[in-house]
Design a protein around this nucleic acid. Structure first.
Lengths: 335, 335
DNA sequence: AAGCTTTCTGAAAGCGCTTACATTTCACAC
DNA sequence: GTGTGAAATGTAAGCGCTTTCAGAAAGCTT
């Protein structure tokens, strides 16, 4: 029923091979007249190639998988969106997948491995073992990872939060804060077991400034998880001067919780988040945040992937980018 | 290099056919002993099926494409996320695509058509012709659409904004507003040419209440497009009492713009948006919004698609769901 | 006019898998 | 011991496309 290459070829009175040459090869030696006839007929009967067949025949698809752990999180969708532009700009197709953590915190890679793509880009791959991953090849497919956790032996674009986390704490200190708490999720025992650069930056700065570290630990990074913990912390210990938040999403949740206990976020309690999500500037108060250099991350990731697709045997490629502190009303109180 | 079915079969000393039967058919007649041997060997050498080959051989993939026009928009990602759960719950795989409008406002469907999937679910398909779409088949593939615009001849889950838009306007009237403007994007001459149910609801209610309609039209629905237009409108005509916004995303942008000209959103100018995005409750002021019944939409969409995959010839399936007005501080001033 | 290129086209194999059909084996009934 | 059917397995074709190789046609050169 579907119109296949053969249909086109038959109508045009040529062999499959010639039709294929016309439809793909730009520089294939085909008579001008033949080429035009084939193209015309293909358009007439609305031929679209069967990608599965193509993939099987060539072993390539000109498609990459973009793999995100939680598409709904504003930051992920920001990266995914930008990466998508980068991929399509380079004339590749893409398919996006959203993989939740499994119950035990591991990832199920089997589905994506069998999918016919030339490579995969993983956004915010969690620290820990990914089954089938070795030397930047995931089940034999080139893989590049983007994220804020160190990963070894994998092509990886690493955003180092440490320097700017420290800067954020110093900034909060400079506007008068002395009790600066770190609001952080602890899903799957992540906290402390992972090498959280934010934590490193935070602790370094706190120590240098001679302050006491203070932690407010939520079960995970979902907004609903923040309010109750924060409110009970405040009830028990009183409110800190400032909250350094694991990400902007949590900042937003914290902001709401503060209001619910009668505190004004940005005035009574200063806030700094991480990521630089789209909302940060539009929120009220406008959020001070440690911004990830998303466009640069994506550009580098693509370079890495393109290289590895061309030659799977090149050595591991890694690059560290630094984040940037963007100061707004939520930490200055000026809004 | 890849381990194929043949590798498994050879090692197990059986034919490809038998190996295939073991690996797929639950109820295929294979000797217990053989079955166990094949399974063991497949696991040992880490066999993963080649989906392209499978797709080619069977014509099916147990995969559906989830197609969104703008993944980065909070509302789209909400629907995509929920739809993803629904699809995976039903033991199908999915691949997500994000298609921007082309310059002329049309959509490029060719890529997705050739991709080996059993069906596609399109979120917020724009009104207008979609190439290759006829009778719920997109290039021969089952298609179900989810969205707030009427589409004929297509399996479609329609969210009717009209009643709740009218309710929103009446609500604003009841809290004392008399100048209620509609803040709406006009990308690609969309406004007025599309059958915008929000507009219908708005105009109906405005007329019934004996008020004057007032339009603030932005170039598109991107946040950056809102501020300048809104501010110059206010400079020219003064501020309205209330803004009924095309979506929550625009409400957030409007909120910021209002503050920038010294007005307090929710007090000086009441706000109602549409969609019910995740942010709406956490925003300050909390946003009154016309919520789409996302979970129900997704459940129905899946039912439609499953039916059509099973039998492409069934008559067109359509369902209309109604939105719900969720009242919060941005319209009551109580926050 | 013979020989040599160059240009164009077709035949055929094969990518990894499924599946209809054929075949073998075996247990059981007569 | 023959016949029958069920159970288990193998054979082979084919899904739609690409690509190698070889052959045909046409244009040169001498």
């Amino acid at each position: 029923m579907r119109v296949s290459l053969r249909c086109v070829a038959e109508r045009a009175g040529v062999s499959d091979a010639t039709a294929s040459r016309v439809l793909n090869g730009v520089d294939a030696p085909v008579a001008r007249e033949t080429r035009e006839r084939v193209l015309r007929i293909a358009a007439e009967i609305g031929y679209t190639p069967n990608l599965a067949a193509k993939a099987l025949a060539t072993g390539r698809t000109k498609t990459v998988a973009l793999w995100s752990v939680n598409l709904r999180a504003p930051h992920s969708s920001q990266v995914v969106y930008c990466m998508r532009d980068e991929i399509m700009k380079n004339d590749y197709d893409l398919t996006i997948s959203d993989f939740k953590f499994r119950v035990d915190g591991a990832l199920d890679t089997s589905r994506i491995i069998s999918w016919p793509v030339d490579g995969v880009i993983a956004v915010d791959l969690p620290r820990g073992d990914v089954p089938g991953l070795s030397n930047s090849l995931l089940g034999g497919k080139p893989l590049v990872s983007i994220g804020a956790y160190v990963l070894e032996n994998v092509d990886h674009v690493y955003v180092d939060f440490a320097p700017m986390s420290a800067a954020a704490v110093r900034h909060l200190h400079s506007v008068g804060c002395r009790r600066i708490a770190y609001l952080v999720p602890n899903w799957f025992e992540w906290f402390r077991s992972a090498d959280d650069a934010r934590l490193r930056g935070y602790e370094t700065a706190i120590e240098q400034l001679g302050l006491e570290p203070e932690f407010i630990v939520t079960e995970n990074e979902v907004r609903a998880a923040v309010g109750p913990v924060l409110k009970s912390h405040i009830a028990l210990h009183g409110a800190p001067d400032a909250l350094f938040c694991f990400n902007d999403n949590m900042t937003i949740a914290a902001s709401r919780a503060l209001r619910e206990v009668g505190l004004i976020p940005g005035r009574d309690v200063k806030l700094v988040g991480c990521d630089g999500i789209d909302d940060s500037a539009d929120f009220y108060p406008p959020l001070t945040t440690v911004v990830q250099p998303v466009e640069e991350m994506c550009a580098v990731a693509w370079t890495f992937l393109a290289r590895r697709i061309k030659d799977p045997d090149i050595p591991v490629q890694q690059m560290t980018l630094t984040a940037k502190l963007e100061i707004r009303g939520s930490s200055t109180g000026d809004f």
